[in-house]
Structure formats: C-alpha cells, structure tokens
Amino acid sequence: MSASPHDSGRGALPPVLRTPPGIFADQGKEAGAVTIRGDLWLGDAVLARGLDIHCRAGCWTCLMGPSGAGKSTLGRLVAGLPVKARLEGRVNVPFGRVALMGQADQLLPWASALDNVCIGARLRGERADRDRARALLALVGLEGLEDRRPDELSGGQRQRVALARTLIEEAAVVVLDEPFSALDAGTRAAMQDLAARLLAGRVVILISHDPLEAARLADHAWLIGREGSRALPLPGGTAPRPIDAPQVLAAQAALFQALSRPCAV
C-alpha cells in the first residue's frame, strides 16, 4: 500500500483511491450518464412531473429544490433504496454499485472508525482490506484516530469516516444526500474541498439546498419542482471553486433566486 496521505496536487489522485476504470473517459452526452425520466408521485399527488435529468459521467450534478420536492427520493432511487413515492418512468444507472453518503453519517455507533470503513466488504461477505481502509482514513485526515468510536469523534470527523467508507466502495456513482448540511461553516467548506478532490472523476449526484455548495462544487445543477426539472446555470472551472470568486458569488445569487421561486420551473 503506497498511499501518500498528504497528496495535495489536484489531478494527481493517490493510488489508494483506485477509481473504477472507464469513467474518466468522456463518453459523450448520453452514454455513461445516469438519467432520471418520468413523473414522481406520492399517493395521488404529483411531486414532480416530466423529470428529465442527466448526470454526466465524471461530473458533479447537483439536484436542488425546496424541501419535499423529492430530491432525496430521486437520490434513493438512484441508489436502489426503497422510497415512499413512486416514479412512473425510468432511472438508468449504467454503472454497477452506487455508494450513498447521507446527511447523518450513518456510522455504526458500536464500531471503531476502521471497522466502519470496512463494513461494506464485511456486509457482502468479502474480505475487508484493512490496510487500504487505514490508508483511506489517513487520506481524509484521520490518521491515528482509527480506533475511535463515532461518539469519540466530532461531527466533521464522523463525516470524514463516512467519506472514507464511501471511497473504499469503489463505486462509479456516488449519491451525496445533503452530506455537509449539519456541519458548521468552516468544517463544511473543508469537507467540500476534500470531497471535491477525492470524488473527482466519478458520477456524483449531490442533493443540496445550499446555493453556495452547488456553485462551488457542481458541474451541472437541476432545479426539481412540481413542473419538472430545469437545468440551472453554474460557473465553469474546476471544483472546488473558491468561495470568493466573483462568478461563484454571482451563481450563488442566481441559484438563490431560482430556489426562491420554485413555481417558475
């Protein structure tokens, strides 16, 4: 295991990440994209009609919208989890396993950080690569804390464990369901930077209602509302974008306005 825990160069990802092959390549507009099409219903009420969402390979796609719009439901559908709503349509996930990272860190409270990172392999009855888990914990900045249980870690540290657990899954598609919303502003910015660096190259679906988060991290953003899905404008450039860049601030304001008028989708 030759992981360099303090690799700071953008683009040069540590080998311990072992990103699934194939998804770095530009596979065109449709090929290799996660798509969500159709109408989302909750009982007799329509949550979102005429959804048509593309999450391009190798990109971060942000799903935005007011609470109750069905953002999280769409994330769960992509991850293959049961939902209360029903989608009359189709979710297409061309890659194998989907990793999920939620708002709560979802750590096993009785297990150490290391055991939490290894849980996926153990749940599938595979041999857990503990050396790699250690290297990934070091990569997210938790070297020396491997034996701590979640209640002995701070909120930010717990999310780092959850990130390491997401990374070890080697999933091409990663659903982030408001993963940083419970953190304080400084910790949140640090976690956003870390996630942007370490999850680069995968299909990342970021569910968020934070315009700044979308403006900093996402390559594409979709506003989800009753009338369907609409693509939102974002600044270009490599994520994570600096918080104080003019185009990030402008995009944040535009997103904020779009979110304030959800009916105008």
Binding site: V98, L100, I119, L123, R124, G125
Partner: peptide
C-alpha cells in the same frame, strides 16, 4: 443503517450479524 446495508449489497445473514 438499514439504507447503508442495502446500498452496500449486504447479504441478509451478514446484515443480521453485523
């Protein structure tokens, strides 16, 4: 944790045990 187990493709036996 139930979601986690599902997303990770846990076997029922492993899910019970772990």
């Amino acid at each position: 944790l139930d979601d986690l187990a599902r997303a990770m493709g846990a076997t029922p036996m492993r899910r019970l045990w772990l």
